[in-house]
């Protein structure tokens, strides 16, 4: 299962789901699905999100049981 820090970083950057969605070109609902772990984003979207939060992709998304996080 894929885990992520999207919700945490979004709060830190002060974005609403809608604002973040607009920045990366998706709907507010898709940001919500990612935060809940309902949906694993494409590499393209993961890269866009990482760029918005100024982190590497593997700092934003990681697999369950991955010790590197």
């Amino acid at each position: 299962m894929l885990h992520n820090r999207v919700k945490e970083l979004r709060a830190r950057f002060g974005f609403s789901q809608g604002e973040l969605g607009e920045r990366v070109g998706v709907t507010r609902q898709t940001i919500g699905f990612i935060e809940k772990g309902d949906f694993s984003p494409s590499i393209t979207l993961a890269l866009k999100l990482a760029r918005e939060f100024e982190v590497k992709v593997d700092e934003l998304f990681w697999l369950e049981g991955d010790k590197s996080q």
Partner: peptide, 9 residues
């Protein structure tokens, strides 16, 4: 199908 999340649903 507005984006990949909605396409997934």
């Amino acid at each position: 199908e507005q984006d990949e999340g909605m396409t997934h649903i």
